[in-house]
Amino acid sequence: MNSITAYCHIKDNVCSVNGEIFLQKNEESADSWFKQLYKELALEYPKFYKMDMLSQAGFLGSELIKKTNPGLLTDYADDEIALLFANSESSADTDIRFRESYLEKKTPSPSLFVYTLPNIVLGEIAIRNKWFGENMFAVLPKFTPDFFIQYGSVLLNTGSKAVLAGWLGILEGRVEVFMFLVETENKNGYPFDAENIRKYAGF
């Protein structure tokens, strides 16, 4: 049976894992909210600083899920974990900044341009973990549990043994991130159905 075995949220000022608060944003800190999370996770991955917010969000979510479910790193071959992400803004947050670079600063910025595709976050997570599995990024009008159930099930029926899935709402400072892990062979979880996804997503 397919089960949801871990999930996490990152919102404007609070981050939680499996429903328990992991960190609250320190409004006094000079560090950005995502940098605070990065530091809390005690990671050594300087590439993080180069990522745009969409990639940072997916990266942090995947690290949080790995932290609570370390089996993700040991129980699977390098191509058995599929990445299934969606949002409704695509890469608009960085698109707006890239447009500014050529309209206002008069120099199109290559380091911004390479993040103007929503699926780059999948590449960042794949590179970090050396995962060679299936990738898919979809842009949907709104958060749709059925989409994750439908395509998540397809992936689990076509060779993938786990799906790291997520909704990455990032636009102009607003953060609405929900990521979850679906596994086939791990029974300590909640049934992978639309009702549970809606319940744990909370939106």
Binding site: I120, L122, I127
Partner: peptide, 13 residues
């Protein structure tokens, strides 16, 4: 015959 996707896990660009 539907196929598969795979990531290089190497570089974003």
């Amino acid at each position: 015959y539907t196929g598969t996707s795979a990531n290089d896990a190497n570089h974003i660009s």
